[in-house]
Structures are given as structure tokens and as C-alpha cells.
Write a protein that binds this DNA or RNA. Structure first.
Lengths: 353, 353
DNA sequence: TTGTATGCGTTATCAT
DNA sequence: ATGATAACGCATACAA
């Protein structure tokens, strides 16, 4: 852990100037003999370039930040899994921020771009406030937002379409013959909650089912909340034959309650979730879920950012990633584990003994 | 995104020297009037300290790297979830590396410490080779290894004890009256596989059960592999009444197969996993699992690193985190969802609409 | 081809 | 209390 050698050390050792050392290290045209001497000295001394000094000079850190609301959230992790390799391949390091969905923290991250420790930022805020937009406009580095931003905001923007996502699921349930399709939605004052609620109404209308307030139940986006909500719903409307849940955790809660109540899934009640997290494939019965393309959104965001880092200025771009319905046992019915059994062998075991 | 102001800009604006600006910004004793002028100028210009220049001068980046084998692995994520807040609280940023468990990549990360873009590193390698140890010895920044390193390696080291972990589970199964306890282990040439195999033999001996080779089946640490292995095992030994699985994914595969075979869990066959990932609580029946303290190992590693970053030199320390058995429905029996229903409401929903 | 000298934005030492 | 100035390690314009 002793102090490492610098180009000065090498220059002295090789008997050349620091300029020559720098040139050799950067592959600029140099006499063979000099190259040899420098490389030899560098090797012997175990020289490694100082990234900080290099950044100060070049004004590039080759670091990119990703600010997620919560490291523990599977949806963000799906993004992270895609973002990481894209950045790595392009020679960028990833700096991770967890903001706990606190607006002030998110704004701090935006401001901190002025410190110039990263070349750009990918951020996925839960909701975008005016303060966000203000800071965003003054951001000192390129930013890509995963989520909803108002029209005209001068940043690249990657969004999901959960509204259409809900429609996909409802169409599917309807096609299976379900006619009393309830919605267990998240809080309506959240962006996802509002969009999913709207999708539900639209979808019912599209298939010609009446909208019945009795069939809508609000739950926070957690499993215990899902249990509570579905229990209430069942008490009020024991005749439901399908549950559209606003995310996988709520859906898992629904499965718990239905099981306890002796309702078979999917025979008596079909259940669909959203987000298509790892948990959907792990549950039993495995859970039909609407993928909102978290992974793809992450990948696209990373690509947009890289484009801007390399290419420089261009018009802000907006990309919407289409949802996709992943049908599993909780709605399909034939052979509970039909799907959900294919490609989930991706998690290697890593704990030491 | 214009070029930000520097202390020179501020000095000019405030009519003082850059030295005074720096002093004010760092809270060193300065005349009130000067402070006022500098702060005013800084505010108006929206000044933000350049972290790169600062690092070059101070030789501290306030960044720490965490190198995990696979961003997708829940065990590493559990570590990350704990590491992140600890570092954040101490004013450090987190740089994430995913090495895909490739030794060469891990060694690259160790070498890259010479670039001085981080002040320290937490690394969790799948296995530690001689090349690792060599590079480790020459590392240019403090390193904490999560995993097994040979006695005498000059780094802080946090380890799990999966051997004892297996014993906990076997004791539990024995106490429940199970007498034909099979082991579905990972490959024996991996560190975890070897340790868990040893734990199994030990545990059997401790409770007075004979070791029967027929009851041991090897599977890779994935769910489909778990299915394959358990199917073979059942064909060979239909009389097993308990399965000790080397990780949760294998255990989930076991549940699949047992269900298809019409064996009730836990009445006919009890199943235990390892790692206590999120999946264990999501499955049905919920899965009894041995926690190897991934979260705590992460936290301890972060604390050890911080200690060294603040305190400077001291003897390398070694911490072993004890395992803990988390009993759920797959072995407990009374009311399938008794446990596993408590505290898994932690994942907020984050996907935009 | 090579060396000298300057600047990147800070912090810190030294005079004043 | 403040200002001029020298590093920190590197890249490069310019001179030789």
C-alpha cells in the first residue's frame, strides 16, 4: 500500500522526460528504443495510471451514476442488471446511489453532478416534482430519466406503459372467460397507481364489461397490504373470478389469502401481477405477471446516455418500452408449473462456506 | 451544461484571492466580511466543488468499490443493501463492479486500485486463487474480502459458516422426527459445496444417523438442476423424508418435483434451503432456509473497511458471521404460512406508469 | 522524436 | 486575515 510510482518516477528510471513517458503510455508515435525503456521501467515499478489526475486533465471520469429509489427493489435491480454490462463494455464505471425515494436526496444527486465525479447520470425517481425539473434544467452533466417527465423537459426519457400493460392482462383474463375481474390497485396519488387505474377502466370498456366500483380495492404496494386488501375485497364481493393486482407483491398477498380461504387458483380465481419480478416465477402457483420491461428500460437508458456522452448534443429523446404479458400458472390453469419453469436458473450461488 | 464556475471565478467576482475562497469554503477562520462576499458570489454563480481536483490534492476520493460476482445474485444483493447505507452515512460513494465470477476480472479490479479512483474495496470472490493472493498482497488500497482466504492473508476477512449452518438445519429436521435426511449439495469442488458436504456428515454423526452415500445427490446451484437432481434422488430413494438443499434455488426445484410427484411438503418430505433469499419467503409452501448472514456480512465488511480508512494501520481482522435457521412452512407443518408472512413488505414499487 | 513548460481546480504553505 | 505560489499527476502545445 506504499505510494505508487508516477510518470516522474518512470521518467527518472528510464532516463527520459515525463512527456515521453506520457506519450508511450498513450500510444503516441515514439522511437522504439524509448518505448522499450519506458515500458520496462513501468513494468518494473508496477506503474498504474492515476485516474484522478487523468480525469482532472481530460475532464472525463469514465464514471456514470445510477440513482435508484431503493437497492432492495427488484424492479430497479432488473434495470441495474442491464445497465451495468452496457456501461462496463463502454469503459465506464458505475456509481450507485440509493435515494430511498426521498425527493431531497434525488435533488442532491442531481446537484452533485456539479462535482464532476461522473460524466452522466441515469435516474429513476418515483415521482418528479417541480424542484426536480428546476435542478434538472441546470444539471451539469447529461441525465437520462427512467420514468415520467412532463412534455418538453430537456432530458432523455425512458418510460414504461403500465396502462397498456393492465389492458394486456385484462384481455387475457377476459379471454379465459372471467367476467368479474377485480383490481387491487396501489395508491391513486402515485404515478403508477393512477396509470394502472386508468388502464383498468379502459380495458373493461374495451372488452365490454361494466366498471364496478365495488371491484376496486386500494392497497399499498406491499405483500401484507395485498393480503389485507384482498381479504376485504373477498368479504365484500365473494363472487370475483379474477384479480388484477398492481404489482407482484400485492399479487403474492392475494395468493396467500385465496389459499387460506380455500379458493383454488386459477380455477376459482385467476390472479395476475405486475412487474414480472423474480418472485413471480418463484411463487406457487407461479404468477402470471405483466412485465413492464424494467430490464429493457435500463438497457435503453444506458444506451441513450452513452450516445450522448460520445456524440455530444442532440435533441432530447423519449422512448417508451412496451409491456409484455408473461402467462404462468396463476391464470393459465393447465399444469400449474407449465411456464415459470424455464429460465430462472440465473442466480449463481455465492455465499462462502 | 455550461462549464461550471471554479474558485477562480468566485475569487474574481468577490474581489478576493483564491486562497480566501478556499478558506471560506472549508470553514477556516476568515473575516466576516470576506465570508459574506465569497458566499454571495458562490451562491450567485451556483458554485459546486470539483470533486476530481479535490481528490487529486487530498489523495482521497470518498469512493469505495464493491466487487460482486453477479449483480443478479440475491445473496450479493443482500450484502449490497447493507453496504450501501453504511458507506453513504460515512460520506462515501459506492462504485459497483460485477465480475461474473471470472478470476481475471476480479484481479483486474484489484489491480485497478492503483488508479486511485477509490479509497478502498470490498470484494466477494467465488474462490480465491494464488493469483488473487499475489495481487492482494500488492494492493494499493485497503481491501476487505467477503469469503474464504487462507490463514495469514494480510486483509480483513468476513466469512460465513455454512458448515454449522447445515448442522442447524439437520438438527431441526432430526428434532421433527425425520430419519432419512438426504442432501442435495452443490458441486464438491466449490468452496461452499465442500463445506456444506462436510457439515452434512458432521451433523448426521452428531445426531447419530448413519451416513448413506445413496442419500447424497449433486446439483449445480440452480433451480432446474435442483429439479433434475431431486428427481433422480427420489427415483433411487423413494423413502426419504427430508431434503437438505445447498441453496434456495435447489430447494425451489425440489418443491417443484415433490409437488409433481404428489408428495406433500412438509408432511411427507420436509425441505430446507440455504441463503434465506427473498425467494424463500415468496415460495409456497414458504421455505425453511439457513441464513448465512449475507446482510450482516455486508455490513461488517463495510464497517471494517471504514475503520481502516479512518484509523489507518492495524492488524488484519477476521470475522465469522454465525448462521441462523429461519423456520418456515416447508418443514414446520402447522399452518403452511405461519412464518414467512411477517416482514417481507420491504420492496416498494418503483416502475413508472 | 524529444524535452520544457503550462494548466486542469484544489488545498496548503509561506510570506505579508 | 489575506495573497501569492507551489504542489497533486497527468496531458499537451510548443520549442528544440
Amino acid at each position: 500500500m506504499a505510494d505508487g510510482p508516477t510518470i516522474n518516477t518512470i521518467a527518472a528510471r528510464a532516463g527520459v522526460s515525463i512527456a515521453s513517458v506520457s506519450r508511450v503510455l498513450n500510444g503516441l508515435p515514439t522511437r522504439q528504443e524509448t518505448v522499450r525503456k519506458v515500458m520496462a521501467a513501468a513494468d518494473e515499478l508496477g506503474y498504474v495510471r492515476n485516474a484522478v489526475a487523468r480525469s482532472l486533465k481530460s475532464r472525463r471520469t469514465h464514471q456514470v451514476a445510477f440513482a435508484m429509489a431503493d437497492v432492495g427493489n427488484p424492479a430497479y435491480l432488473a434495470m441495474l442488471r442491464e445497465i451495468q454490462p452496457v456501461l462496463k463494455a463502454a469503459g465506464y464505471r458505475l456509481v450507485l446511489h440509493s435515494t430511498d425515494a426521498v425527493a431531497a436526496d434525488e435533488i442532491d444527486v442531481l446537484r452533485s453532478l456539479g462535482e464532476r465525479y461522473v460524466d452522466g447520470l441515469i435516474m429513476s425517481p418515483l415521482r418528479v416534482t417541480d424542484a426536480h425539473l428546476e435542478t434538472l434544467a441546470a444539471a451539469r452533466a447529461p441525465v437520462v430519466i427512467i420514468g415520467q417527465v412532463p412534455e418538453g423537459t430537456p432530458v432523455d426519457n425512458v418510460r414504461a406503459d403500465s396502462r397498456t400493460g393492465v389492458r394486456l392482462a385484462i384481455d387475457h383474463l377476459y379471454a379465459l372467460g372471467r367476467r368479474r375481474v377485480a383490481m387491487v390497485n396501489g395508491p391513486l396519488d402515485t404515478v403508477p397507481g393512477a396509470a394502472r387505474g386508468a388502464g383498468y377502466r379502459e380495458a373493461l370498456e374495451a372488452v365490454g364489461l361494466p366498471y364496478d366500483e365495488d371491484l376496486v380495492q386500494i392497497a399499498d404496494f406491499y405483500r401484507p397490504e395485498g393480503r389485507r386488501a384482498v381479504a376485504e375485497l373477498l368479504a365484500r364481493r365473494p363472487d370475483v373470478d379474477a384479480l388484477m393486482c398492481a404489482n407482484d407483491l400485492i399479487a403474492l398477498g392475494a395468493l396467500d389469502v385465496l389459499r387460506d380461504a380455500g379458493r383454488r387458483v386459477p380455477e376459482d380465481v385467476a390472479v395476475a401481477g405486475m412487474d414480472d419480478t423474480d418472485l413471480a416465477a418463484a411463487s406457487w402457483p407461479s404468477l402470471t405477471s405483466v412485465s413492464l420491461g424494467s430490464a429493457e428500460r435500463g438497457r435503453v437508458a444506458a444506451e441513450l446516455l452513452l450516445e450522448r456522452l460520445n456524440g455530444g448534443e442532440r435533441e432530447p429523446r423519449r422512448v417508451t418500452v412496451p409491456p409484455r404479458l408473461v402467462v404462468r400458472a396463476s391464470t393459465a390453469g393447465e399444469g400449474h408449473c407449465a411456464e415459470g419453469r424455464s429460465a430462472e436458473g440465473r442466480h449463481a450461488e455465492g455465499s462462502g462456506a
